[in-house]
Design a protein around this nucleic acid. Structure first.
Length: 568
RNA sequence: GCGCCUGUAGCUCAGCUGGAUAGAGCAACGGACUUCUAAUCCGUAGGCCAGGGGUUCGAAUCCCUUCAGGCGCGCCA
């Protein structure tokens, strides 16, 4: 594998006995622009060790390093030692590697025989799927793809919000204002209406809250009437969620919601008691976390029913036994950070050393016109509506740009849905986002359609080239001398570095950003240099670059959960 | 009140474990399609990196502090 920093570091270490290769490697960086060189060593830190001025060190090293096959020249510029590499050789190595590795380019096997549980999406039963849930779904889905790309075995779990007092509320509302017919006809929309009405009425009549709690308590005792209603609501909801997941090409290995762990809680409570962690406080059972500067973790309410944390603890222990995970990752909103810290600590206090393998991956909230999204008040943008608008807009563009395209509907679906996913994965996950129709339906610039368009453009050139001759993959990289060609190649080279970063930071946006950079470099190259030229050698060389870009774009797109499109 | 997160161009955001003149896109304005898909490309304009201290040869980046916004903080999830 080609590692230009390593080559340079090795070269320097042969000249300076006081420094080992790793130290040098760590300090190497890429200069801000190509005229300065390809790899640089800032000599300021060395100044103290070597007791010379940075400039002097750079000068001396510059004159003592002899050019090699890979390093063409070395320059000292104001304290920096700048290396200029053999660009044709670099291009050849990078493109060859991509040609060989194909859809594995950027991947790794560091995760071999390791299991990762990823808990994502987790919508609440009886509530519509809106933009807020979208984030967990797309971030989790992308992380899963990234982990798999790095060799891990992933278990995707959709931890449905199918248990809790909210169902008491829903049952209460259904009994008071609902009808079987309305729910059957309107599905989740009717359930939401009932839920919203409950909260409106409960403001005037707080006793409704008590009734809701008692219905939930009945559910926990296995009461027939309560359970049947709950199961019915759940079936309706899952059916609707699956439509959304199909649309987005997202899937899960298990749909084990909170209710799944219901019968696994009792032993956990016993265990907590045995380990002396549970104490009674104001009628409830808690784990005190004061010495860890956290509020207590509530385990059982005074009416004996469970809480979110209780179920999370039971679920984690169950998952550890079941899947023997190396890491268990929870993709949920940042507002739940304290909750996760609390119950992670409880797991640790229970004596499980794998408490450190539990990871919360938080993300910022989605707001709408400055207001928080809330199902209770009905203030939501439904995912269904966003997707259909995006698809509609895409179809319109296709009709005007490329009306002869085959499979228009299918392309429009991938393009439109992809645009929404892309935009959600575009900035750092921790940032709050403000939903805007204008932004989500803008297909110019740093967007999913831009990257897809670029990929399709590359495919198109490759297709055209194959109409005349089938070129082999040998090419003369010395014919690729322009700055656009080199820049494109440099960016292609960075891909494996980016996938590693995305993995270690659990940050899909690193890939999304990268795709935009790569697409920009490709489009500049494409615009500036004709590819299907008469000169056979030049054509082969440029075409190789196009193929390498196409492969890398496709690999990146898959990592964020999009299907690379061949024609748009 | 305490804790966590965020603050970079009019808007949306990049900026790696500190490094060379702070980068994109959108919006605005001006250019480029008889030639491989113009959902593209090129150019112009736009910045006391929230304010103030400090550490350092060097700070958007690290530390302290103030301000602004968001999110949490016992029977919701």
């Amino acid at each position: 594998m080609l590692d230009i920093k390593r080559i340079v570091a090795k070269n320097i270490s042969e000249q300076v006995s006081q420094l080992d290769i790793e130290q040098i490697y760590e300090n190497l960086e890429y200069p801000p622009n190509a005229e300065m060189g390809d790899v640089a060593l800032p000599c300021f830190k060395l100044s103290r060790i070597l007791r010379k001025s940075p400039n002097q060190i750079a000068q001396e090293l510059a004159s003592s390093i002899t050019p090699s096959q890979f390093i063409e020249k070395v320059e000292a510029v104001s304290g920096y030692l700048n290396f200029f590499i053999n660009r044709p050789l670099f291009i050849e190595k990078v493109v060859d590697r991509i040609m060989v590795e194909q859809d594995k380019y950027g991947s790794s096997d560091i995760g071999k025989s390791r299991n990762i549980v990823i808990d994502y999406s987790a919508p609440n039963i009886a509530k519509p799927f809106h933009v807020g849930h979208l984030r967990s779904t797309v971030i989790g889905n992308s992380l899963r793809k990234i982990f798999e790309f790095m060799g891990y075995n992933c278990i995707g779990i959709n931890y449905l919000g199918d248990w809790g007092t909210q169902f008491g509320k829903l049952i209460t509302a259904y009994n008071l204002w609902g009808s079987k017919q309305a729910v059957e006809e309107k599905g989740i929309k009717e359930l939401m209406r009932l839920y919203v009405k409950f909260h409106q009425e409960a403001e005037k009549n707080p006793s409704l809250e008590d009734e809701a709690r008692s219905w939930f308590a009945r559910m926990e005792r296995g009461d027939k009437q309560a359970t049947e209603l709950w199961q019915w609501f759940k079936d309706i909801s899952i059916k609707e969620f699956e439509k959304v997941y199909d649309l987005m090409d997202v899937d899960f290995d298990y749909y084990t919601g909170e209710s799944f762990y219901n019968d696994k809680i009792e032993p956990i409570i016993e265990e907590l008691k045995q380990k002396g962690l549970l104490i009674e406080s104001q009628g409830a059972l808690i784990v005190d976390l004061e010495q860890y500067d956290m509020p207590p973790c509530l385990i059982l309410k005074k009416d004996g029913s469970t809480l979110y944390a209780t179920r999370d603890i039971a679920a984690a222990i169950h998952r550890k036994r079941e899947y023997g995970f190396d890491k268990c990752i929870y993709v949920t909103g940042a507002s739940q950070s304290l909750h996760f810290q609390q119950w992670f600590k409880v797991i640790e206090l229970m004596g499980y050393e794998w408490a450190n393998d539990l990871i919360h991956v938080p993300f910022g909230i989605v707001s709408l016109g400055g207001e928080k999204l809330a199902t209770r008040t009905g203030k939501v943008v439904l995912l269904e509506d966003i997707m259909s608008e995006a698809i509609k807009k895409t179809l319109e563009i296709i009709e005007s740009k490329n009306p002869g395209l085959e499979n228009k509907e299918d392309v429009a679906r991938h393009m439109g849905v992809g645009a929404v996913i892309f935009s959600d994965l575009y900035s750092n996950r921790i940032k709050d986002v403000s939903f805007s129709w204008d932004e989500i339906l803008n297909f110019d610039g740093e967007t999913g359609p831009y990257v897809q368009y670029t990929h399709a453009r590359a495919c198109s050139v490759i297709r055209k080239s194959e109409e005349t001759t089938v070129d082999d993959n040998n090419f003369n990289s010395r014919l690729l001398q322009t700055k656009e060609e080199y820049q494109l190649c440099k960016t292609l080279y960075e891909f494996p570095e980016k996938t590693r970063m995305a993995l270690s930071q659990l940050e899909p946006s690193i890939i999304t950003r990268y795709l935009v950079d790569l697409a920009q470099d490709f489009n500049r190259f494409y615009h500036e240099h004709p590819i299907l030229v008469d000169d056979k050698e030049l054509r082969k060389a440029r075409l190789s670059l196009v193929k390498a870009a196409k492969i890398t774009l496709a690999n990146g797109l898959r990592l964020i959960g999009l299907k690379p499109l061949e024609k748009v």
